[in-house]
Amino acid sequence: MANLPLHGTLSDEQLEVQEEAGVLVQNDKIERVDSYQTLLAEAKRQGYSLQEIEQPMVLMPGLIDAHTHICFAGSRARDYSLRVSGKSYLEIARSGGGILDTVRKTRQATREELVQLLKKRALRHLSEGVTTCEVKSGYGLTVADELKMLQVIQEADNELPLDLIPTCLAAHMCPPEFGSSHEYLNYLLQELLPVVREQQLAQRIDIFIEETAFSEAEALAYLQKAQAMGFAVTVHADQFSTGGSKVAAEVKACSADHLEASGVPEIELMAEAGVVGVVLPGASVGLGMHYAPARKMLDGGICVAIASDWNPGSAPMGDLLVQAALLGAAEKLTIAETLAGITFRAAHALRLTDRGTLATGQLADMIAFPAETYQEILYHQGKLKPTIIWKEGKRVL
């Protein structure tokens, strides 16, 4: 994946595939990728330890999930039953279900309970090849509860072999304790974000722009103030209606995520601003709605990442590889475009430059599939999982 462009379309012919290859790892980074026999001789001379794999396998960079909500308590199975009975996501939210239902359960959970729940989900992700996972807060919606969530993410990150990248999504929606969205966002800017910055609990800020959450004008002012405080920003954009991508382009956000409602004007705005489009097929599957227009986005020159959106409401499946394979089949993405979307392009959405490819100087985050060719990985539509996983050069599965 090392020599592919960040933006736009990719053909499978552009993929660099090395046959009978080896990887030389020094400490936690890749020192060299070359033919196995060449590296074997060098390793023996220098006294390196060897991990030899004799069966045919395909090695690729560890997967990167750039958008999840896996720090939460409770279940939203009732919401799902209502949804498949015909109720819309917005109708369920208005009737007391949706995000606020998870907020109530997450507030009631202890920090220790949330740590164990998060670790369980993160370890499942790791077992399926995800070596870097973004995790959002946003089910607290008070200063104390949002800080609790971010501290839980930090604690789990310190205890797990995979990397958890925290994002403060306190602007998920306006909680019932506040009379207006404007009042709540000011509360976050004055009371929460300075503490998040001081305690180094997150470097990234997110906001949900939608009818049941925050308006474009509110989001724009909030994001600009967060940027002035030194935060990187991303946006939940264009899930049910357009407008969020325009805000993302105006503030030159790292990414605009969801984008199911985006059309040509929105794609052009994002492409011009260099905003990564993070598409979330898990939400489309969970809500029974169309996918984001990934094919049009790639054709329009956007860097497209694919993430799971693993959350208790709209995307409870959480299997990144399955979702990427389904999206690729539906949107007619090449294998190269799909794999790029869950490796180095996902790293770019998180502004991580040290992972996502197998190249000198990169973290030795690697996964090996029991397959003869790389096409097998997506051909099985996510059912073929990696059987060997390395995180920073250490074998963890």
Results as ranks from 00 to 15, higher is better:
12 D>F: 13
15 L>Y: 09
23 V>C: 07
26 Q>P: 04
28 D>E: 14
29 K>G: 01
34 D>S: 13
41 A>F: 15
47 G>C: 08
47 G>L: 12
49 S>V: 06
51 Q>E: 15
52 E>Y: 14
52 E>K: 14
53 I>H: 10
57 M>F: 12
59 L>N: 00
62 G>F: 10
71 C>G: 07
74 G>R: 07
75 S>T: 15
76 R>L: 04
77 A>N: 12
78 R>C: 00
78 R>N: 05
79 D>A: 10
81 S>H: 12
84 V>A: 03
88 S>H: 02
94 R>W: 00
102 T>P: 05
104 R>D: 06
105 K>E: 14
108 Q>N: 10
112 E>T: 04
115 V>K: 11
117 L>W: 04
126 L>E: 00
132 T>Y: 00
133 C>A: 12
135 V>W: 07
137 S>F: 00
139 Y>D: 09
148 K>D: 03
150 L>G: 06
151 Q>A: 01
156 A>Q: 05
166 P>W: 14
172 H>V: 03
176 P>G: 03
176 P>V: 08
177 E>Q: 11
179 G>N: 03
180 S>G: 04
185 L>Y: 06
190 Q>C: 04
195 V>P: 03
195 V>H: 05
196 V>C: 07
198 E>L: 11
209 I>M: 05
210 E>D: 13
211 E>A: 08
212 T>H: 06
219 A>G: 15
220 L>C: 04
221 A>M: 05
222 Y>A: 08
223 L>I: 08
231 F>W: 08
232 A>K: 11
234 T>K: 15
239 Q>N: 13
246 K>G: 13
248 A>M: 02
249 A>K: 09
250 E>T: 12
258 H>Y: 02
259 L>N: 09
259 L>T: 01
260 E>H: 06
263 G>D: 05
270 M>H: 04
271 A>M: 01
275 V>H: 11
276 V>Y: 03
289 M>R: 13
295 R>T: 09
298 L>S: 13
298 L>W: 08
304 V>D: 04
306 I>V: 06
307 A>K: 04
311 N>S: 11
311 N>L: 05
312 P>R: 11
314 S>M: 09
315 A>C: 12
322 V>P: 00
326 L>C: 04
334 T>P: 06
334 T>Y: 05
336 A>R: 02
337 E>G: 06
339 L>R: 06
339 L>F: 05
344 F>R: 05
351 R>I: 10
359 A>F: 05
362 Q>R: 15
364 A>Q: 06
367 I>L: 08
370 P>Y: 08
370 P>K: 14
372 E>C: 02
376 E>P: 01
377 I>K: 05
384 L>Y: 13
387 T>N: 15
388 I>C: 13
390 W>Q: 07
392 E>D: 09
395 R>D: 01
